[in-house]
């Protein structure tokens, strides 16, 4: 197989798989004559999407905004926390168990508390998205900072470098691939957080839409909601994957990086 056609196959593979799965789904529903209120066929879901398009898009937009706000908060806090943990052994030792404990708490369980503080609606969704997504960012940044070679640190210290120097010249650039990798994980978690919160305590958003649809047994609409969440997740993931490749091409050992680039 020529390298060109192989690359074409790689590009087509996700589409082939997705469409294939949808076809199998459709076939299963038709062959076994599954009722639409149990499991609607993809065509029925698409019909529902077209029918309720306006309201779905409004709610999706709402979810998107909550997710992104929580995500931005998560980036800021996660980055600062990661730098804080990663640059000091003492802070690491002290804070890590607390963070692990915090992260072990199911965030669904925190939504009622958040409702108490922030009320029903968008602030709670933003906060839940934030709570879910800051942790992987912080951990990854801390890991990146902790993996600076000790020899390199010795070299810099024997030049009179301060801790800030080492952090700026070596630590942070070294942590960037970890940071951008964590963004891909964090954005999907932010969606999870926002939707969870909307299903429990909101009058807007895809989560709310799904609860409404569920109570009225409009199963195709529920599935349309799920599909929209999945689509938003994939799109944002791809966005950050592209940014990752742009920013930290050096870490991928130049498959696409022209020799002599940069400089």
């Amino acid at each position: 197989m020529s390298p060109n056609s192989r690359r074409n196959m790689e590009r087509l593979a996700p589409w082939v798989v997705t469409i294939g799965l949808l076809l199998i789904w459709q076939a299963v529903v038709m062959v076994f004559q599954i009722e639409p209120f149990v499991m609607p066929a993809p065509t029925a879901i698409f019909e529902a999407f077209l029918q309720y398009r306006d309201s779905i898009l409004i709610h999706a937009w709402h979810t998107m905004v909550s997710t992104l706000l929580g995500f931005v908060l998560g980036i800021v806090v996660g980055l600062l926390l990661g730098i804080f943990i990663g640059s000091s052994r003492l802070v690491y030792a002290g804070l890590y168990p607390v963070l692990i404990g915090f992260n072990s708490v199911p965030k669904v369980a925190m939504v009622p508390v958040l409702v108490l503080w922030l009320g029903i609606g968008q602030p709670t969704a933003v906060a839940t998205a934030f709570l879910l997504c800051f942790f992987p960012i912080a951990v990854n940044v801390a890991t990146g900072l902790a993996t600076v070679e000790p020899e390199l640190e010795d070299v810099l210290r024997s030049l009179g470098a301060s801790r800030t120097d080492i952090l700026l010249k070596v630590g942070l650039p070294r942590a960037m691939p970890y940071f951008f990798a964590s963004l891909k994980v964090a954005i999907t978690l932010a969606f999870v957080g926002a939707v969870i919160s909307e299903t429990l305590a909101s009058n807007d958003g895809i989560g709310y839409l799904m609860i409404q649809a569920s109570s009225q047994f409009r199963v195709p609409l529920m599935f349309a909601g799920l599909a929209v969440i999945a689509a938003m997740g994939v799109v944002t993931y791809l966005f950050f994957a592209v940014i990752e490749r742009r920013m930290t091409g050096w870490a991928v050992r130049g498959q696409n990086l022209a020799p002599g680039g940069g400089g």
């Binding site: 070679e149 020899e151 390199l152 010795d154 960037m176 050096w250 870490a251």
Partner: peptide, 10 residues
């Protein structure tokens, strides 16, 4: 200088 060159890859 050490055995490991520790150049910055970026």
């Amino acid at each position: 200088a050490f055995q490991n060159p520790t150049l910055l890859p970026w």
